[in-house]
Design a protein around this nucleic acid. Structure first.
Lengths: 342, 342
DNA sequence: TGAAGCTGTCAAAGCGCTTTGAAATTTCCT
DNA sequence: AGGAAATTTCAAAGCGCTTTGACAGCTTCA
């Protein structure tokens, strides 16, 4: 069933039917009713590809999903998608996901943009000096970046959390508790958030003339296994750190296992603060020792970005171009005063 | 840059250029070279919407993502997507994801199919007597169901794991170890896999004239929090179960926390077998007490389904319509002989 | 009563691509 | 050399929708 058939059925022109459907004012209310009724009866749905071709609008947001055989999937991606979806479903938008090798991100993003399949782009997994930025600017298609790109001029639309501030505050809390030996369990080194979090830690330490030893930093995928491994390494250091900053509750999971296995007590021998993306499957308050965290909902960020993107496409008023969300520092039991030097 | 411009630039007709691009044999090799060269120089990309309109093929797989404010996102969804993506990227396919309220799945799926945006559908989160099945059959669009629908005639293309067999085997192992008091920590009751796993447990128990008490079954979202809560409930039962079957390693995470908090030892006081979807963020072998599991890679299932779907769209040979994958039962340390009756 | 202004409807063009069927050109065979 | 066959190219139609510009049919007002 297409427009033509429907209009023949009604004895109207395609024009009128189309207008009736799209809410144009110049069509008689009675006629519109009749059309709407027929749509219900026939189950007619406009062909999106044709609509897209005619209007240039597709009602969709494009994103690139990094994937490859052996490439670990990322919980954060799913959670973020849920946030995007929550908002998109309200506006009858959908997503076009282009899977791409992580090494091929720039090209994949360009393909997606040029394909004419999407109205706007969402970009994540930002790196330092990210090469996608230049391409996006040349594209004349709305986009929002989740995160930022360290080292690039911040002249693009983004939504980010204050990673540096979060880890600065967390570090200060631990300093106030008397800790002096710190370790950082971070995400992959090339990613922007990892760089900023590290900087946050370092600048808080610098204020006390402390430094972060190379041995006390781990950059790795954020899985519980990596958390376990990193923590085991830290614990074997001659000068064992007592304060751990951790880029994800998933990493913390493994880290805590290592702490337990070493016979140490969390919140006493070892203090730990993790960043909490508010993943529904892992609540910091339910850990056997509830976790002190810096918190910011990944899902909320997704919903907000979808809102901005869809709003821009629909030309529904201006949106702030750049948003920096503060994180909350929530103190629970995994942090405590530094143990007396043994 | 569109086809017309490109062909004018080359002094060829649109037909010839189109054919050259799409690998038709009736075009001179020299001409094809020239066209390919021009494409490189101009960066021309065909408009997908137009292609879709003309051919009826979109190069995309559609799926519905259940979402709503407050609706928990699901790790399994992301992992599955990674599997689909891994295969799709090889064939230059993409995904169209339609977010939809979980109560609106049937309608959302139909909208997606009729929109003309996708060539094939992937359907998950199957329920008992799933109403989507009838709709899919009426659709004349290829689809593959992940899972099955308990209570419906299995006359549709699917890929499923042998949930019943997995939990039957797991239960038998525990029976052989002398356990008699069982509990099952399952996913949401209406979902097909939950029904089958429960049946697997019950039929193994029935062979020994044992039953599964209502109090010893929990149906809930598969998060660590629900695992914790369910296990706490089980542990307070007057006749405490000693053998726990668990539908996910994520649930197991919480469950084990509860076991520890109760001062019980996993693998001694309590034996536990969990189903392992091979989520990259949670490896059963890294648990403080490595977990005995039934294993089947969700990601591999995703890749296989993508393969079938894409193959069907491209008419690349017939695929088996129905696949039932066996799971592996991997014994680690979380299972042990039943403790002596105290 | 006729010009002017609304309303509601329509025919047709156009979005960028593929594909059909025909035309132009080249190659082959007798 | 002459005609058939094969090769290469093309013009035009069509995919299903939106939108422009025109046109009837009614009101309205001087």
């Amino acid at each position: 069933m297409n427009l033509k058939q429907l209009s023949e059925l009604l004895g109207l022109s395609q024009t009128t039917v189309s207008r009736a459907l799209n809410g144009y004012p110049e069509v008689n209310e009675a006629t519109r009713e009749r059309v709407l009724q027929a749509v219900k009866e026939t189950g007619y749905r406009p062909n999106k590809a044709a609509q897209r071709l005619a209007t240039g609008k597709a009602g969709s947001i494009g994103l690139v999903m990094p994937t490859a055989p052996g490439h670990q999937s990322d919980v954060h991606f799913g959670e973020f998608l849920a946030g995007l979806g929550e908002e998109a479903v309200r506006h009858d938008f959908h997503f076009v996901i282009m899977p791409a090798d992580p090494d091929d991100e720039v090209a994949a993003l360009r393909r997606l943009a040029i394909s004419g399949n999407v109205d706007a782009l969402f970009v994540a997994y930002m790196r330092g000096h990210d090469p996608r930025l230049a391409m996006l600017k040349s594209l004349s298609m709305p986009y929002v970046v989740h995160g930022r790109s360290f080292g690039s001029e911040p002249d693009y639309p983004f939504l980010d959390i204050d990673n540096e501030g979060a880890f600065y505050d967390a570090t200060r809390l631990l300093l106030q508790l008397g800790h002096t030996r710190f370790a950082l369990m971070n995400g992959p080194m090339h990613l922007d958030f990892a760089i900023r979090r590290r900087n946050g830690v370092m600048s808080a330490l610098a204020e006390r003339r402390l430094t972060l030893d190379e041995d006390c930093v781990s950059h790795a995928l954020m899985t519980d296994e990596q958390g376990l491994l990193a923590m085991e390494r830290f614990l074997q250091l001659p000068e064992r750190p007592t304060a751990i900053l951790c880029s994800s509750t998933v990493l913390a999971l493994g880290a805590i296992r290592a702490v337990n296995q070493a016979g140490l007590r969390l919140g006493e021998d070892i203090s730990l603060i993790a960043h909490d993306d508010v993943l529904p499957l892992l609540k910091p308050e339910n850990f056997s020792v509830p976790l002190t965290t810096t918190r910011s909902s990944l899902r909320a960020a997704g919903a907000r970005i979808a809102q901005r993107l869809i709003g821009t496409v629909k030309q529904a008023g201006p949106f702030p171009d750049q948003e920096l969300w503060k994180t909350e520092l929530i103190v629970r039991s995994s942090t405590g005063p530094a143990p007396q030097r043994s």
